[in-house]
Simulated assay, not measured.
Amino acid sequence: MKFSWSTFILGAAAGAASALLVQQNVTNTASASAERALKEVKEAFKGEGTIDGSWVKMKPEPMNKTGMNKMVYKGGVSRTIDQNREQFEFIADSRTGTIMDVYKTN
């Protein structure tokens, strides 16, 4: 069998492209960003009024609740309605970005 540079280069390019696609897919499905979770919460609150401030912890932390063990992002949103300041905190699944809980803190 004779060595062919064109076959070698074509195979190498296909392998590199496949590796890149796999890496991107794993990165995109491995975890959602904290910013994405915060954006989702802010969008929900914007429907009810202006947001004064918001925050999110960028590093996920473990949550163990009634047999559920997950890594979560924690954050918060504040707003003023009828001159009353309201503060809320949220918990979001770090893998999917799904908001798991929102509760009023004051």
Score class of each variant (00 low, 15 high):
M1T: 10
M1H: 10
F3D: 00
F3E: 03
S4Q: 13
S6N: 14
S6D: 14
T7D: 15
I9C: 07
I9V: 14
I9M: 13
I9E: 09
L10R: 10
L10A: 13
G11R: 10
A12L: 10
A13Q: 07
A14N: 06
A14M: 08
A14Q: 05
G15C: 05
A16F: 11
A16G: 13
A19V: 02
L20W: 15
L21Y: 08
Q24F: 12
Q24S: 11
N25D: 15
V26S: 13
N28Y: 13
N28M: 14
T29F: 06
T29R: 11
T29Y: 08
A30P: 11
A32Y: 03
A32I: 03
E35F: 11
E35C: 04
R36F: 02
R36P: 00
A37V: 01
A37S: 12
A37T: 00
A37N: 06
L38C: 02
E40H: 12
V41H: 06
V41C: 09
V41T: 07
V41I: 11
E43H: 13
E43P: 03
A44E: 10
A44Y: 05
F45W: 03
F45T: 05
F45D: 04
K46D: 07
K46T: 04
G47R: 05
G47W: 00
G47K: 07
G49P: 05
I51P: 05
I51H: 03
D52N: 13
G53W: 08
G53H: 08
S54F: 01
S54N: 04
S54Y: 00
W55A: 07
K57P: 00
M58D: 09
M58I: 12
K59R: 09
P60G: 02
P60W: 02
E61G: 13
P62M: 12
P62D: 13
M63A: 09
M63R: 12
K65F: 11
T66A: 15
G67R: 06
M68V: 14
M68S: 14
N69T: 12
M71C: 04
M71I: 04
V72H: 03
V72C: 07
V72T: 06
K74M: 09
V77R: 04
V77I: 15
V77T: 03
T80L: 09
I81Y: 08
I81D: 11
I81S: 11
I81C: 05
I81G: 06
N84D: 13
R85P: 07
E86C: 12
E86Q: 15
Q87D: 15
F88R: 08
F88H: 10
E89M: 11
F90G: 02
F90R: 07
F90H: 03
I91V: 08
A92I: 00
A92R: 04
A92F: 02
D93R: 00
S94W: 00
S94N: 01
R95C: 01
T96N: 06
G97K: 04
G97V: 03
M100A: 03
M100I: 00
D101W: 05
D101T: 02
V102H: 04
V102N: 09
V102T: 11
Y103G: 03
Y103V: 05
K104W: 09
T105H: 10
N106E: 08
